[in-house]
């Protein structure tokens, strides 16, 4: 059995927090470049140009892409043949988040209690651990901005509802976000499972490269259909008009109950920040 020390995990999580925040994902950057060349509106091009330039300055000057360095959401795929030694895994991940946010001069955007609030701190995040086969650990950190997180929506549809209704709900959620959550967006959608699992899928969908599909031809069709409609809304970059309201729609599905159809929408701003390492 392979052993991995918790200290190693702390280090990796810290590095990933910094990497995610400083270097824009290549798939997102490419999509932004393509959108820039597609846009006709002067204002939309000007804003997309600024977003692309921002990524360059962030990389060169080692500055966070956005002042909201997000809430760290850590996804861990833990091979079941790995033994973690030297301490508790959750504690190690949390230590990694705090270390990364401090070391990377990121923002102390977390409060210890949602109602008591208190002084903002660097520590705290959300951890999802999944057991998989094998002897590796895949660690992904998503630095999720909260301007767009605030636009999240969940709806439990009737099982007789179809794609038309579901798509309408996704589009309404984006319209409701409007210019406030930094469009162009990447729209994560979770279909099926339970309420909380649909939500999880919607978030996980944001991790998938925006140029790839899940492999289900049916889902891929839904994604491109929805994206096409979104880009006809004329919301555009910063909500000031244009063809680029969303860069992608990523849909994840899961078996669900005969009685329902959970639909979760988790929007990401153009600053979609995640980084992955496999140990």
């Amino acid at each position: 059995m392979r052993t991995i020390k918790v200290d190693r995990i702390t280090q990796v999580v810290a590095e990933l927090c910094i990497r995610a925040n400083l270097f824009l994902r290549k798939d997102v950057l490419n999509a932004l470049r393509q959108a820039y060349f597609r846009e006709k509106s002067k204002m939309a091009r000007c804003i997309l140009g600024a977003i692309i330039k921002n990524a360059k300055i962030a990389r060169q000057k080692r500055l966070p892409l956005c002042q909201d360095t997000g809430i760290a959401v850590v996804f861990l795929e833990l091979g079941q043949d790995v033994r973690i030694t030297g301490g508790n895994l959750n504690t190690a991940i949390n230590k990694g988040i705090e270390l990364g946010y401090r070391k990377g001069y990121l923002r102390d955007s977390m409060v210890a209690h949602p109602l008591l609030r208190g002084k903002p701190v660097f520590s705290g995040g959300v951890i999802h651990i999944d057991l998989v086969k094998g002897s590796r650990i895949k660690i992904t950190v998503l630095a999720k901005g909260f301007g767009c997180e605030n636009k999240t929506a969940l709806k439990m549809f009737k099982p007789t509802a179809g794609w038309k209704e579901v798509k309408h709900f996704i589009i309404e959620t984006v319209k409701n976000a409007g210019p406030d959550a930094c469009p162009p967006y990447i729209v994560g959608v979770g279909l099926g499972g339970t309420a909380e699992y649909a939500m999880f899928l919607a978030k996980k969908a944001l991790l998938r490269k925006i140029t790839t599909t899940t492999g289900y031809a049916f889902n891929a069709k839904l994604e491109s259909d929805c994206l096409k409609d979104l880009n006809q809304l004329n919301l555009g970059p910063m909500g000031l008009g244009g063809k680029t309201t969303a860069l992608a729609v990523n849909i994840e599905t899961h078996p669900t109950h005969i009685t329902g159809l959970p639909v979760a929408v988790n929007i990401s701003c153009h600053a979609l920040r995640s980084a992955t390492t496999v140990l």
């Binding site: 921002n54 990524a55 956005c66």
Partner: peptide, 13 residues
């Protein structure tokens, strides 16, 4: 006023 949203590194300049 609006300024470039999500362009925080650029705006430091």
């Amino acid at each position: 006023f609006l300024t470039y949203a999500g362009c925080a590194a650029l705006l430091t300049q």
